[in-house]
Structure formats: C-alpha cells, structure tokens
Design a protein around this nucleic acid. Structure first.
Lengths: 210, 210, 210, 210
DNA sequence: TATGAATGAGAGTTCATTCAT
DNA sequence: TATGAATGAACTCTCATTCAT
C-alpha cells in the first residue's frame, strides 16, 4: 500500500474531498460511495490507494501533520520582544487552525472517539513541542519582569485554541448574536475581533499592568 | 409515538445508555444494536419508543436541555458583587458541562455536523439567554468602575467554555503533560486548577488592576 | 446466535439448500446470494440465522454429525457372526455416505482445505470410535480363527470408504465405462455391484480361504 | 494467447504456484492476487499469459496430463508375471498420485464441481486406457488360472486409488491413529505400509489361495 | 404494550479483468 | 513483451426499520 507521505495528484484530491466530508458529516457518517461520487472516482479506488477507509483517515492525518509541523517549526526563531512573540504565537495558532479547519474538526472528534484506534503520537508530539516553545517565551518575559509569576502556563494554549474552536463550533449562535451575515464576514470577524480578543485576554493574564 | 418530554423509566434508561455511547463513538458510530444490547432491551424498542434513531437523539437533546435550563435560571437573582458573580458564573458553566460531559460531547459534534437536520433552537435560546445574563453582570461591573470598557463581552463565554472543552477533548495530552495518572486526578484538576485558571484569565481581562 | 443443534424449519431448509450448493460448487464457489435465491429467502437471513456464512457451514457440520453419530452407535450391539458383522459394517458405511453424499462431498474438501479453520473434532471422534468398533469385530474373528492375522486393520476402513468415494467422485468415468445411463442406474449400481465388490474385497483380505 | 502446451519458464512457475494454492485453498478460494504475490509477478500476468483464471486452470490440467500420460504408457510393455505386474501397476498409481498430489487434489474437486465447465476428456481417456491395460493384465492372470473369475475388474482401480486418496484426505485422523508425527513419517507410511496394504488387498481379491 | 422475525438498503472490501503505455 | 493503474461487478455483512403477533 502506498505510504501516506508520498501521494500522487489523485490521491491528494481524494484526501481533500474526504477531509471536507469527514469534517461535515463525520467519519462514520461519510461513506466511501459519498467520497467516490464527489471525487468522481471509482468506489474501489479508496481501498486500492489507501488499503481501507480507516487507513485513508490515517493517511490524511499523516499528510496534514507534515504540513502543520513545518509551520510550527518556523516559529521560535525570530528575535522580538516577548509580548510581541506571544501575539505572533496566537496568530500562528489561529492561522493554522483556520487554514486546516476541516482537518482540526475531524481531529477534534477522532481524538476523543473510542471507536477507532488511530495513532495520534505524531500529533501529540507536535502539541508537546508547541507547549515547550510557549513556555520558553513566557519564561523569557518573566525573567524580564514583564510577565506575572502566578500563572498556569500549561493551560494558556487551551484558552487560545479553545476560544477559537468554540467560536467555530458555535457558528450559527455567533452569527446570530454578532449579526454576521456571510461566511466572509464570519471569517473576517475571526481574523480581527476574535484574534484581538484572544490576544487581549492572554496579554491581560500575563502582563503586569502599567 | 410517546412525546420526548414525558419519559418513563425504561425510556430514560435507554437515553442514558445512548448518551454514553453517542459520546464515546458518535451517533453514526453507534448502532441501535449496541444500545439495545447494553440497555438489555429489544432492538425494536428504540423505534417503538422514539420513532427512530434520529428522533431518539432529538429526545435526548430535549431531555437534557430541560435539565440544563433550570440550573441557569437560578443564577442572576443573587445579590453579590460583580467580581464574585463572574466567578459564580464560571463555576456554573464548568459544573454544568462537567455534569453532562457526555451530552456536551454529543452536542459539540452534532451542532457542526451537516448530516442531520436537528433542531437546536431550544439550545440556541439558552445560549442567548446566558449571554444576556453575562452581559448584564459585566455591565453592572462597568457601571461601578470595576470592569474595563474596551472588552468584547460577547466572546468571553467562548473563552470560558472553550478552555474547558479543549482541555476535555485533549485529555491524553494534558494527562501526560500534567502527570495526572487517574480519572479522579484529572477531574479534580478541572475542579481546582483549571477553574482557577479560567477565573484568573477572565478577571484579568475584566478588572482594572489595583 | 442460534445454536446449531436447535434449528427451526426455515433454518433447516437453508442448511439443506446450502449443503446441496456447497457440494456442487464448493463453499467459496457458492455465494450467499445463490443460497438465498434458491431458498427464496432474503440475503440477510443467513447472517441473521447463523451469524455468518462460515458459521452456517459449522452449523451444517454439527447438524449432520448429530444425525450420523446416532446411526453408528446402533451398530455393534447385534449378535451375529463376524463375517456377517463386517458386511453389515460395510453396508452401514455405504448407506450413511449415500444418504449424506452432499455432506460428505463438502467434508472431503473442507477437511483438506487450509483456508478455513473449522473444528472437525466431533467428526474425528466419530471416525476414531468407528475404527475401534471395526477393530473389535476383526479381533473377534481372529480369535475364532476365521480371520487372518497379518493384516493392517487400521487401513481397511480407508479401503471401504475410499472405494465408494472414488467411485462417486468419478461418476462420469464410471457411467461411461459401465454404461449406466441414468442417475437411478448409477445409484443402483452402488447399492448392488459396488457394495458387493467392497464386501468381496474386504472378505478376501480378512478370511482364510476354505 | 499462448497455447497451454508450450510454456515458458515464467508460465511454468506460475502454474506450479497456482497448483499448490489451488490444492490448499481451492480454485475459488485462491485469488489471482494470492498467486501473483507468491510468484512475485504482476497481477495482470495471469490474464496476459493464460487469458483468464479459468483458462489457467485448464492450462494446468493439460500441462499435468502430458506428464502423467507418459508415465502410464511405459507400463504394459514389460514381460513379468501377472501377479508382479499387478503390484507394479499399484506402485505406478501410488507413485504418480504421490508425485502430483496437489494436482490430484485439485482434480478431485474440480471433477465433481458443477461450477466450471472444464474439459476432462483428456483425463477421462487416460483413465479409460489405464483401465484397459489393467483389464488385460487381469485377463492374462485369469487365463493362466492364477486369478479368480468372479470379480468385478472395473472396480479394482477405484479400490486402489480410493484407498490412497482417502488416506491422504484424512491425514490428521491417520496421523493421530497411527502416531505419525512428521510429514516424512506420513509419506513413508504411504510408501511402505499403505502400499503393502493395497497390494495385499488386491492380491487377496484376485488370487486363488494356495 | 412489547417483541422476535424478517427485510431492503447500503456499508466496506475484494474480485478478475482491461487498457494505455 | 510486460505492467501499473484503474474499473465494474460481486462479495459478505450490518444497518435501521417494519410487521405480525
């Protein structure tokens, strides 16, 4: 069976469609026939390319993680002030999740599902690495006397991501409350107001007021 | 067909088991056979009692919302300081989600699923009502000059809930990072450290430093 | 799943049809659709009644063995001369195989197939028991000085059964050679000439000539 | 399409592997993929070389019959006593079947299968020819007054082959009963004891006792 | 009121074969 | 001559649901 990291054009197309459908209807709610129809391929292609439906999901996960890891690795190198670095970190999180919102939607469900035994080791490592980088940034700020000491740094990423994800998962609610009448308006709100809110929240938590 | 709001003992038992299984394996990942087996009832009972599998889910949602609404309505009446009220509000959110974690897990998925056309109106109203109450509390604090003005109040609940839910959805990650070796330790961490973190975060955002 | 030994009318009908088709086309060569069509039942019935196609085969084997065991057990009790007993034994073998020729055809293949892991323990025990009975009959004859000593008793059943089975497996050949132009003529030849040949062969091997 | 009788090295290799797998798992139980994998060839090769899976089986049968015919034809020429000739005949049968046990296993099933319309004319002719030769040998012995008259000569080959084949098809049973603990011991038993048993059986049937 | 029997539809997967290269 | 890609058909099995009792 073709390894997930070395995908041809058709395979990538299938994964993209599968990603969308899995995000919309869930893994169990999406049939291979759905995917084949939308991707205009033969039903047998999925098994042919990936071995099985479940292995296709694994391929998708591996495929996406490759992409995501790269982005994360470019993070810590820059030499700017801690306050700004935190903001950059938040932006990176938001941008990455925005870019792969379908994938993160799938992940969200599959991670807590007890149905399939999918290996999330690679993803867990990414999360750990990110947390380490974040901790270093905060520690830097604390040493400079800019950031407070009595804060639970471990939980800050969950506040950043959690806020964004919750906003995304409750789109109809927020569209109504915030009177966002198009997808564009909604996505734009995330990039401006929501991002600003998260930054403000985290900075308030971290910084001494002046 | 028996209406969903008037449930006998057996129906409630079925819903409880279904809730657990749906949370664990998703709606599509759980078969009526699974439920019937675990609940030790006949397979035909689900269709007989609720009409269909999908209607059973709707019954479950209605059933839970009844329960949840009541708790929320008791909130605003108390006459305590805004700062303390915010904390009570956070506690209420966390406790409610903790109490019905399976249900909220289902909701999380079904809300963003485009597979089933389930009516979340009742739930949307609860969310709106909660937001209104929350806004009033903050406004009260702002009038008293305790809370800042330039904050996006609409997004604060998403930070509260998002942080908790994200923590729950990434249990293996946090168990590893925080060295929580039992479910009890994990749940306890939520009730103490995580709650404290959320309170601190929201208070930092709202309050002027003194 | 319903245990194989307690079968209702419909299940028995399905097994009978399956037995015929498996004998004609082999287990792998027969589809559940074939069976369902011929038995005029829904395709899902096989899985519903027996759990799976393979378990249906197991049910069939158990079902038949019950029947066959009973016949064998009635054998040794009679008090007749050894020579006659041997003949009765041969007749019993031939009659049993004739009666269940389809089943023995399936068994023949499945026993030597390395594809499915079917438990033939029950059948192996029947074979062992039969061999023991046969050995006792021959020993009786040897003690009476009627039967020879230098014979390999273990192999005599294989000659009895082997001759019959080989005759059955090469029906077109023997039909041509022996000019048997109907199934009736063929079956009749087995009951007369072939039975006689086997009796004569075994008696020649066992008895001292007088 | 390449005719079956003129096979190149690769084709012969494929047939050999197919023969083994068909014997082990049956024709329908063996997929072209199985064969291709074991023979380390492309899946398309089978169709390319033989036209189809079924035609490959026909090629295999033709291929083997060529080989088997030759051995048989060398039989009758020798000028030895009828008693010895019968023994040589039995040995020839046993050796040929031993040598091509996989093939005979396939034949056994395919001959009585009503699934595929395979032409066994060539094989039927071999069987007829063999029977004729055998009849002549017996007739010779009868003329010399060595062999009995009231015997069904037509059925003797079925006793010879049937005994051997039955012994082979019930290998686990006989391994247990005869305490043969290795394949070598089993094969050796066939060459010595079983061969001796068959010879003794047939000679007892044919010869007047002296 | 409650249930075991039964069913049509659709699930994922594997099949032998074809075809462009 | 040989092959990897691709396909339609068929496979077994499970699904939610219905129905007679």
């Amino acid at each position: 069976m073709i390894p997930a990291t070395d995908l041809n054009e058709k395979q990538t197309k299938i994964l993209l469609i599968a990603e969308k459908l899995f995000a919309e209807k869930g893994f169990d709610g999406t049939s291979i026939r759905n995917i084949a129809q939308e991707a205009q391929i033969n039903i047998a292609m999925v098994s042919y390319y990936f071995g099985s439906k479940e292995k296709m999901l694994e391929s998708l996960i591996l495929h996406r993680i490759e992409d995501i890891k790269m982005q994360v690795e470019n993070l810590y190198r820059e030499s700017i002030a801690p306050v700004e670095k935190i903001n950059r970190f938040i932006e990176l999180y938001i941008n990455t999740i925005n870019k792969h919102k379908c994938f993160y939607q799938i992940l969200l469900f599959e991670q807590s599902s007890q149905k399939r035994a999918i290996d999330f080791k690679a993803f867990t490592e990414v999360k750990k690495a990110n947390l380490e980088i974040f901790k270093k940034i905060v520690a830097e700020g604390q040493e400079l006397g800019i950031f407070k000491q009595n804060i639970n740094i471990n939980l800050i990423p969950s506040t950043i991501i959690g806020t964004l994800v919750h906003f995304r998962m409750n789109r109809p609610h927020y569209e109504a409350v915030l009177e966002l009448q198009s997808e564009e308006a909604y996505e734009n709100y995330i990039k401006t107001e929501l991002t600003q809110h998260i930054k403000q929240t985290i900075q308030s938590l971290l910084k001494y007021e002046n």
